[in-house]
Design a protein around this nucleic acid. Structure first.
Lengths: 341, 341
DNA sequence: TTGTATGCGTTATCAC
DNA sequence: GTGATAACGCATACAA
C-alpha cells in the first residue's frame, strides 16, 4: 500500500498523528502556523482523512439515505434534486435506493441501513399495502426517518406531504364545472394512503354536487404499461366516462394513448386532469390540466426536517407534519371550448 | 450506548467475536449449528455488522459514486436507474452527486471521494470546458472511473457513449429529406465533446447534400430557461430556419414554446428533431421526432463496466469504449405531410 | 500548543 | 471448529 494516511503525513512533517488530526477539525487548539504547514503538506500529498475511520470513531456518517419507489419519474427526480441540494449545503452525502414498489426491497434497504451506513432516512414508501410494523421493530435504535408524499399513516414519524384531499376535491369539482357527469378515478393502489386520500376528495366533491358515486368508476391500475393500456381501454369502452381524474401522471399518459387508439378526442369527448409534475404539460396534445405538486420544495423540506432532527441536540417540538400546497393549472385537456391550435 | 455490536452478541451467546464474525462471512469454517444459532440470535437482537468497521478493516466500501450534471432530466434519471439496478445486483450502494454543470463542484466531489468513501466513480462530466487535468493529479491512486455520455476526451478512462456522430448525421439528413434547406443547430455548449461530435455530424450531412454551412445557424444556448427563450426566439426571427436540430431535449421544448409564442407552426413552417429520452414524445403537440438514446442501458453498461474493473483481479483487456446505438424515431414534428389529429 | 495512549467494531492470522 | 489478538485509520482524554 502506497496510500497516504495520517501516520505517514505525521512522519513526513515530524509531528504526531494527533496534531495532524487537529489540523483537520476546527474546534481543537492548534497553532495557526502548524495548521497551515499541515494543510499544505496534506494537499501536496493528496491526503484526506479516511472517511470510514473517522466515522467509526465518531459514530456518525454524515450520510443520509433516500428511498423512493422509482427514479425515472419527474416527481421523484425533482424531489431528489431538492434533497440533494439541501444535503450538500449541510455537508451530507446521499445514498439512493429504488424499491420498484417492492415491499421486500424496502424492508431490506431499511434493515441494512441500520448498520451505521446512514444517519437518517428520507423515504417515499413502496406501493404495496403490507405490514409496516417492521419499522417499529427497531425501537429506540431506529434511525431518524422522514416520509414524503407516500407515507404509512400508522408509523409515527415526521412527514412532508401536500394537501392532496383538497386538491382532489377541487380537481373533481373542476371537471364537474366543465360539464362532466361521469368521472372516472384512475388509481394505482387505492389502499395506499395517498391513493385513499385523493379518492376521498373525489368522492366528497361528487357528493357535494349531487352526483352519485359509482364504485366501478374507480379504476384500479397497475405499474405495468401494457396492463394499464388494456385496463384503461376497457374502462373507457365499458364505463363511457366523460371525465377522467388520474392520481398519478403515468395514468394520464396511458389515458392519452388509449384515447388516441380509440379515437376518443380530448377534451371534446373526455376531459382529463391529473396529478403531475411534468414541466412540459403545456406541450402535450392537448395540453394537460394538472395538479402540480411542488416536488423540489417537498424534497427540500423533507431534507431540512431531517437535518433539524439530526443536528439539534435539543429536539424541541418539531413539526410532525409539513403540508405544502399543490396548484391546479387548467389547460386544454379539461377545456369546455378548446381553442384549436 | 445501548446499541448492539459483535462483542455483545458474543457475550450473549458465550462465544468469541471471531466466531460471530465467521458466521457472517461465507468462506470461513464454522459448524452449521453454531452458525444458525448466531444468525438467529443476531436477528433477534437486530444485530448487523457495522459497515464502517468492516470497511475500515477491508479497505473497501462496496459503494460507488455517480456524478451527473443534473437530476431532474429524463436522460439522467433513466441512466441512474440503470446504474442503480446493476449496483444492487452486485451488492453495491450508490452515492449521488449533482454538479449543476458547475466545474468547481465536480472537482470538489471527485477530490472528496478519494478518501475511501467510494470504490469507484461513474460520471457524466459538467458542461464547462475547463482544465480536466485535475483527474490526472491523483496518479495511480485515482479511483476507477467510468465516463458516460458526456466525457472528457483527453482523460484516459473507460467510457460508455452512443453513436452521436452518426445519429446527428442521419438526423440532419432526415431534415434535408423532409425538404429543409436552412437547418439551425441548437447546442448548449459547443466546446463540450458531445456538442462537438453532434455538430460535426450536422456539418458533414449538410456538406454531403451540397448545403452551405452557415456559422450563424449554430445557436449557442444556455442552461437557463429564460435565456433560451430569448435566444431561440431571436434566432427563429432573424435566421428564419425551416428546420431545427437540437442537441438536447430541453432545447426542443424551448423551441416548441417559442414557436407557440411566435405563431410558427410545426412542422409546416419549421421541422424539429431532437436528441431526447422523453418517453411521451408521441404525446407532444406535434409529436416530436427524436434521436432516442438507450439511457437505461447506458447506465447499466457503465455500471457493469465499473464492476468488472473493481471485481477483476486480473484486469485483462477491458474495453476502453462501449458504443451503443441511438434510434431515430420519426414523428410529426418533421413530417412533410402531417396528419391533422 | 503538542504528544501518548486507547478504543471505535470489525476481520485476518495464528494458535489451540 | 473455535478463541485470542493485532491491526485498519482516526479522534480524543489525558499528560507534558
Amino acid at each position: 500500500m502506497d496510500s497516504i494516511n495520517i501516520k505517514k503525513l505525521a512522519e513526513a512533517l515530524n509531528l504526531s498523528t494527533s496534531t495532524i488530526s487537529r489540523a483537520f477539525r476546527d474546534n481543537s487548539d492548534i497553532s495557526v502556523a502548524t495548521k497551515e504547514r499541515i494543510l499544505a503538506k496534506a494537499k501536496e500529498l493528496n491526503y484526506q482523512p479516511n472517511h470510514y475511520a473517522s466515522n467509526l470513531r465518531e459514530q456518525k456518517s454524515k450520510t443520509i439515505a433516500v428511498i423512493v419507489p422509482e427514479l425515472a419519474n419527474n416527481y421523484f427526480s425533482q424531489a431528489i434534486h431538492g434533497i440533494e441540494r439541501v444535503a450538500r449545503e449541510n455537508g451530507y452525502h446521499i445514498l439512493i435506493y429504488v424499491t420498484d414498489d417492492d415491499y421486500k426491497k424496502e424492508v431490506t434497504f431499511i434493515r441494512h441501513l441500520h448498520n451505521g451506513r446512514a444517519d437518517g432516512i428520507i423515504m417515499s414508501v413502496s406501493g404495496e399495502a403490507n405490514d409496516h410494523n417492521y419499522l417499529n421493530k427497531f425501537g429506540a435504535k431506529r434511525l431518524p426517518l422522514v416520509f414524503f408524499d407516500r407515507i404509512y399513516e400508522d408509523i409515527e414519524t415526521p412527514r412532508v406531504i401536500t394537501n392532496d384531499y383538497n386538491s382532489s376535491f377541487l380537481a373533481t369539482e373542476h371537471l364537474i364545472e366543465q360539464g362532466c357527469k361521469r368521472i372516472a378515478y384512475l388509481v394505482v393502489n387505492k389502499s395506499l394512503s395517498i391513493g385513499k386520500t385523493r379518492m376521498q376528495g373525489y368522492i366528497d366533491a361528487l357528493a357535494k354536487h349531487g352526483i352519485l358515486f359509482e364504485e366501478n368508476l374507480i379504476v384500479d391500475c397497475s405499474n405495468s404499461y401494457e396492463e394499464n393500456s388494456v385496463i384503461i381501454k376497457d374502462a373507457l369502452n365499458e364505463l363511457k366516462p366523460d371525465g377522467v381524474f388520474t392520481s398519478v401522471e403515468r395514468l394520464a399518459f396511458a389515458t392519452y394513448y388509449a384515447c388516441y387508439d380509440l379515437g376518443i378526442s380530448i377534451p371534446e369527448n373526455l376531459k382529463v386532469i391529473s396529478f403531475s409534475s411534468l414541466e412540459i404539460a403545456p406541450l402535450l396534445n392537448p395540453s394537460l390540466t394538472t395538479i402540480t405538486q411542488p416536488a423540489t420544495e417537498i424534497g427540500e423540506e423533507a431534507a431540512s426536517l431531517l437535518f433539524t432532527i439530526l443536528d439539534d441536540h435539543a429536539d424541541k417540538n418539531l413539526p410532525r407534519e409539513i403540508v405544502l400546497e399543490s396548484k391546479i393549472i387548467m389547460r386544454n385537456s379539461t377545456s369546455k371550448h378548446p381553442k384549436k391550435p
